[in-house]
Design a protein around this nucleic acid. Structure first.
Length: 476
RNA sequence: GACCCUAUGGUCUAGCGGUUAGGACACAUCCCUUUCACGGAUGUAGCCCGGGUUCGAUUCCCGGUAGGGUCGCCA
């Protein structure tokens, strides 16, 4: 029987990076085994539910290209533009318009085990509570319904951790029973979670280790219903760099923050794979297909891992460098637009030529406007520290001579510019650097950037000379 | 407090009853490039502590310590 695995987030308007990795591991296991990946929305907390909150989850998964076989159908109205989804990865999520009824998310779903929103499954839960009640396995208590928990230790057979014998804590020793139906009539998480897994024929539960202790309750519930519990795999948690628990308000805890910073989803996915899982052959950079092929539960590590932003950034650089041109342009244009720069005002060939000089030289797309903004605006500040160093009186006559040399040029391509600059330096009896640095600052305002000769070629003779002229005036 | 999980350089990890304990990120130095980035080379740095088993433990067992998790009418 093919595995049926699920990711069951609750819509809080926020998708934790750890939750994203849980989704990823579930997805990987389903794809590796040829099983079914199910997305179930645990929206029992009506107060927090909204279409937007559900969209955060759906869009987050779509961004990471984690497609699901059963669950809500994603609409085209998604706030995430499709161009941000890797072209190299087939997205199986069918597109359709979502229907929204009131405040509750009622997206059309696919799959034969629906509904996939817990808010629509109350009848099922009611029936299951009655079942336990009538069989004497649960009882009413102060308006709520409590489940008669066994007092003996429960053995959890975990695919990652191994056999765990969960004994009662001293509190549970006093009263091991727990509430399954609140006095307001709402069933609690432990109960709905088990009932849904049971009704949806879930075979593997892959979730964070924070659920390990509570698994005893879940197993007891399955047994009460006379059903064999699914296989459990508890994966280690993601910690802050300082080793503390990564909670909602910590930097980098939200998946959305990586999208906002201009990370590539393939870099995020690759990095997340490496956190708590290893291919064990010293390889780090792995394509999605390679991970799907190698991924399996026994290779999952047992200890928590700290989030290493620098390593993610390294992977980001790796993937950014080898982006296909079309996608690179799209992401770059998007980054400029986000920074308030409309590159559409410039000829497409100019934009592409400008971007070509930047490819592979920056990592995050959010860095791009600062890195290459000089291509798209003539007004910019000179880097103060660098200006102090290179906009000095003795450089003025040198820069004037270079301006004259450039002005005399017929061709204005990188090779010609390089020759002219080096020849000018030779005549001046100075190192090329004495001309390169002030010219770079004049043209871009920054001490760092694309290759000087190539950037001047893209800028063109007129703009290049104008900027040198302007710098000359600034030197005074 | 009780119960559970975990422990290899700063970080992510490979590994094994006998290894010069391997790789990656980061860091340092050098080369390339008169920017930055990339690439190349070199280097600093590690088996939590204490017992036990064993001819021999980083590896197996026990204890300690540390970190994390769970004990809700939150999910």
């Amino acid at each position: 029987m093919k595995p049926r695995v699920r990711f069951a987030p609750s819509p809080t308007g926020y998708l934790h990076i750890g939750g994203a990795r849980t989704a990823l591991f579930n997805w990987l296991y389903a794809r590796h085994t040829g099983g079914t990946f199910i997305l179930r929305i645990e929206d029992t907390d009506a107060a927090r539910n909204s279409q937007e909150a559900v969209d955060v989850i759906l869009n987050g998964l779509r961004w990471l290209c984690l497609d699901w076989d059963e669950g809500p159908i994603v609409g085209q109205a998604s706030s995430l533009s499709s161009e941000r989804v890797s072209a190299s990865i087939e997205v199986k999520v069918p597109l359709a318009s979502p229907t929204v009824t009131g405040k509750m998310p009622v997206l059309p779903c696919k799959g034969n085990f629906g509904p996939y929103f817990q808010s629509q499954r109350s009848e099922i839960y009611k029936r299951r509570v009655q079942e336990l009640l009538s069989r004497g396995l649960a009882y009413e208590h102060e308006g709520a319904v409590k489940f008669k928990m066994q007092r003996e230790p429960v053995t959890i057979h975990d695919l990652v951790v191994g056999d765990v014998v969960r004994k009662l804590t001293d509190r549970e020793e006093l009263d091991p029973d727990f509430v399954i139906l609140r006095s307001d009539g709402q069933p609690v998480f432990h109960f709905v979670n088990v009932v849904d897994d049971l009704e949806m024929d879930i075979t593997h539960v892959i979730r964070g280790e924070d659920h390990l202790s509570n698994t005893a309750k879940h197993i007891a519930l399955f047994q009460a219903f006379g059903v064999k519990p699914p296989h459990y795999a508890h994966i280690p948690l993601i910690l802050n760099p300082d080793g503390s628990k990564m909670s909602k308000r910590d930097i980098g805890a939200s998946l959305t923050s990586y999208l906002d910073e201009g990370f590539l989803p393939e870099a995020v996915v690759n990095y997340l794979c490496l956190l708590g899982w290893s291919p064990k052959d010293n390889r780090e950079k792995l394509s999605r297909a390679e991970v799907v092929e190698r991924f399996d539960l026994p290779q999952i590590l047992r200890h928590n891992a700290r989030f290493d932003y620098e390593k993610l950034l390294w992977l980001q650089g790796e993937y950014a460098r080898e982006l296909a041109d079309d996608r690179f342009y799209e992401l770059a244009v998007h980054a400029f637009a986000k920074a308030g720069m409309d590159t559409n005002r410039f000829p497409l060939t100019y934009v592409k030529a400008a971007l070509d000089t930047c490819k592979g030289k920056f990592k995050l797309f959010n860095e791009l406007p600062a890195y290459a903004g000089f291509y798209f605006r003539d007004e910019f500040e000179y880097n103060a520290d660098d200006a102090k160093k290179v906009f000095i009186p003795e450089n003025k006559p040198r820069l004037e001579k270079l301006r004259d040399a450039f002005a005399a040029l017929n061709a204005f391509d990188a090779a010609t510019l390089e020759t002219a600059l080096k020849e000018t330096a030779r005549q001046l009896g100075v190192k090329a650097g004495a001309l390169i640095h002030p010219t770079r600052l004049a043209a871009t305002g920054n001490p760092h950037g694309p290759s000087l000769y190539h950037l001047l070629e893209v800028l063109g003779k007129e703009k290049s000379l104008a900027r040198i002229e302007k710098a000359l005036a600034a030197i005074g």
